[in-house]
Amino acid sequence: MRKLMLAFSLLCAATVSANPAMEGDWMIEVKPSGAAVIGLLEIERDNDGWLAFVEGGPAPIKIDGNQVAVDIDTRDIRGFVIVLKLEGQLDDDRLSGSYTVQSDAEVSFTPGTWSAVRFVAEERAKEPRPVDISGIWKPAPGVDFRKYSMDLTDEAEAWHANYLMHYDQPNVRCVSPGIVAMVAWGGYPFEVLSSDKRLTFLYEVDSEVRRIFLDDREAPEFYPGSGMGYSTGRWEGSQLVVETTHLSPNVRDFRGEPISENARLEEVYKLSEDGQRLSAVITLHDPENYKRPPVRRRAWTRNPDTEIYPYECDPDSFYRQMYNENKLDMYFERSKQRF
């Protein structure tokens, strides 16, 4: 993985004869043999050439005339890093081309083609038109890049440099990972219970319960911070916009980038016309730690045939391994570093 990241970081961003029309926001779609993934590609001018960001994280770019090459680092569901190496061209205000897959691990992500069109932010209606999203929802495959590296502040970089993924991630010791990580996880369904003033999300993972208040209330004074935070929602047209505050310091994903107690999570949910697919754009606003907000995109399909299963967790085997390897002292000495 080190070799991969080194090659990734060495890719230079300079160019001399780039077509200025490359600049702007693009909605990019990458098409492997399995489900396609989508994300926002931002291409910007810089004093030394060009910069690009995918879903808020840096993506080294080279532009020469109408030709473009972008590297997007992602991870698979096991945590193995994959670099998608895109090459293509600008033609008729559309980017398209092919890509290869680079990883030290055997991964299921296949090479394929990609394309990008100009991103135009969708205007959401102001008049509420609530739709029925109650039911059990099962994660759909693909959807987003799981962008690996993010645009961290210097303070966040410094904190993250001392993070040990295996020992410090909350859920390895059976502590709930919190809503920011949980909402983007695959593998587990969740159930929505609806009423006029409140939505209740029941997550299978960690048996977490989340109340989303729809009645314009504010959190009580002294409401404590937690991994699940305090959520309020509103309908903008038929889209549900959920804002979550009162988060406790936590980590965003496997990689362990920090989340501050002042962070705000925004989720925008949209139901398909046939009512069978729920999708969400999930944005973490936390300028203390991120120069650009990290974005995830998830989707779920309606699945009335399943139930929410119990989720019980026992950290015994996690501590047993450290005991066997004489690492318990090290683990507890790191307690102050751990959220």
Partner: peptide, 8 residues
């Protein structure tokens, strides 16, 4: 394929 923490 369903790991929920990094075994990498």
């Amino acid at each position: 394929a369903n790991a929920h923490h990094s075994f990498a």
